[in-house]
């Protein structure tokens, strides 16, 4: 009944409106009070056309994209991101992901599938974020995970 994950699988894209509220709320939730993330006038004085999203918010959104897809039992193991084009208010961030590696490992005595996903996030300026996320999902817990899969056991993680 379960659908197996495979290398090459594309995750459904997630479009996130980049509102001024999201930029400010993300900055404050991450305790980042740099003025370029909440004060448009000061951002302009520093050479930016407007406030822009901070890296911690992008990191959080990338993590959410992955756990939204794999379910609440999925646990993030690694998130590595690189930023490019800034996220300014009024834009839309479109996250896409593709599974690039899969392996089964024993973590703290339990079997887990480690799934590595290559993530990109584009806005209308260009590529906002490129990254890789490694997520651990439980193996073969009936009904808990919509797509648990068992593959060859190898050592080590991804990314």
């Amino acid at each position: 009944m379960t659908e197996a994950y495979r290398v090459g699988d594309e995750l459904p894209p997630l479009e996130i409106p980049v509102t001024r509220t999201l930029i400010v709320a993300g900055a404050i939730a991450s305790r980042d009070y740099q003025d370029v993330h909440h004060d448009a006038e000061l951002a302009r004085e520093k050479g930016s056309p407007d406030i822009f999203m901070n890296i911690l918010t992008t990191n959080g959104l990338v993590g959410r994209y992955i756990t939204d897809h794999f379910g609440s039992a999925a646990v993030l193991r690694k998130v590595a991101i690189r930023l490019g084009a800034p996220n300014y208010p009024g834009d839309v961030l479109r996250l896409t992901g593709r599974i690039v590696a899969l392996e089964d490992v024993a973590l703290e005595g339990e079997n887990r599938s480690l799934i590595e996903v290559a993530v990109t996030g584009d806005n209308r300026i260009g590529r906002h974020v490129t990254g890789k996320v490694t997520v651990a999902i439980p193996v073969a817990i009936p009904g808990a995970i919509p797509g648990a899969v068992t593959v060859a056991i190898t050592e080590g993680g991804g990314a």
């Binding site: 991450s30 930016s48 999203m53 901070n54 890296i55 490019g84 800034p86």
Partner: peptide, 10 residues
């Protein structure tokens, strides 16, 4: 500290 930002820095 509070030095987290982002931009066209490649």
């Amino acid at each position: 500290g509070t030095r987290a930002g982002q931009a066209d820095a490649q």
